[in-house]
């Protein structure tokens, strides 16, 4: 197909020590599509994502970016990575650099832009993630949500063909998640191609065009976001129920930016966080 951005075929990863984390994963990511990868801990979600970026070398399988295999020794790994954005669970901002410098670093040293040109691009993406006010702050002085938005801006600035999100909200306090999710949703609406590993079931359903459910290193179920509501397999059903599936109601979809179901917290309408 013409519009396949990312294609993963029969991906295997055996870690040194013998843990067989990924056992034959196949899926495609199309242009402008957001794919959410869900699954319980240890199901190989993050491993798949890191294999795509070659932060982990897959043991077997083929990964193609726009039809070109990228997991061979001869592929220019730096060039490939500069075409794939990555947002980490723990932000990984460069703590010795200010916000603006964090965003311009790749532009200047990978894209080879001049300082003013890079800053122009950086200010543009920082505006998109609503971080324009804090461009001179050090990451140490930002809240978690702000850090993650800067991290998204850093990935966006490189104008990647696909952005990989590795559990972008799991390290955040519940009240900080909203802004990050909103930013990601904004990107989805703009037609950015994305692969999102997440625990936010509601968010996945709301934002993703397609859901890939991984279990024990294999794709257990794959389909449009509606499979969250009507899971076909028993395993996904069990997984969803363990994520307090019973508490998901239709109306939450509108305000899910302030929802964090997998932490057991449901807004009670007063805006106060229950004391436990």
């Amino acid at each position: 197909m013409e519009d396949v951005v990312l294609s993963i075929r029969d991906l295997h990863k055996i870690y040194p020590g013998g843990v067989h984390a990924v056992r034959g994963v196949d899926f495609d990511v199309h242009e402008g599509e957001s794919v959410a990868i869900i699954g319980s801990s240890g199901s190989g979600k993050s491993t798949v994502l890191r294999c795509i970026n070659r932060l982990i070398e897959p043991t077997e399988g083929v990964i193609e970016l726009r039809g070109q295999q990228i997991n061979t020794p001869n592929a220019n790994v730096n060039e490939v990575r500069s075409r794939i954005g990555m947002v980490f669970q723990s932000f990984e901002l460069f703590s010795h650099l200010k916000v603006l410098e964090n965003v311009t670093l790749g532009l200047r040293h990978v894209r080879g832009m001049g300082k003013s040109e890079a800053e122009e691009v950086a200010l543009d993406v920082l505006e998109r993630v609503d971080m324009l006010e804090r461009i001179d702050a050090y990451p140490g002085n930002l809240s978690g949500g702000q850090k993650q938005r800067v991290a998204i801006a850093r990935a966006l600035a490189m104008k990647p063909e696909v952005i990989l999100f590795d559990e972008p909200t799991s390290a955040l306090d519940p009240e900080l998640i909203g802004s990050v999710l909103q930013t990601i949703r904004g990107l989805a609406d703009e037609g950015m191609t994305m692969v999102i590993v997440t625990h936010e079931i509601n968010f996945a359903r709301d934002v993703a065009d397609r859901i890939v459910y991984l279990d024990q290193g294999k794709v257990a179920e794959e389909g449009p976001s509606s499979i969250i509501n009507q899971p076909k397999t028993e395993r996904l059903q069990r997984f969803l129920s363990s994520m307090h599936e019973d508490k998901i109601s239709e109306d939450i979809g509108n305000e899910l930016v302030s929802t964090q179901t997998d932490h057991g917290y449901v807004p009670d309408g007063t805006g106060n966080r229950p004391r436990s």
């Binding site: 730096n78 075409r83 990555m86 980490f88 723990s90 990984e92 460069f94 790749g106 490189m158």
Partner: peptide, 21 residues
């Protein structure tokens, strides 16, 4: 943290470049 190296590499910097910058 090893994530710093991953973050540097993920924006396309080389190993030496990430080390240096």
């Amino acid at each position: 943290p090893s994530g710093q190296m991953e973050a540097g590499r993920s924006i396309g910097l080389t190993y030496i470049g990430t080390m240096r910058l």
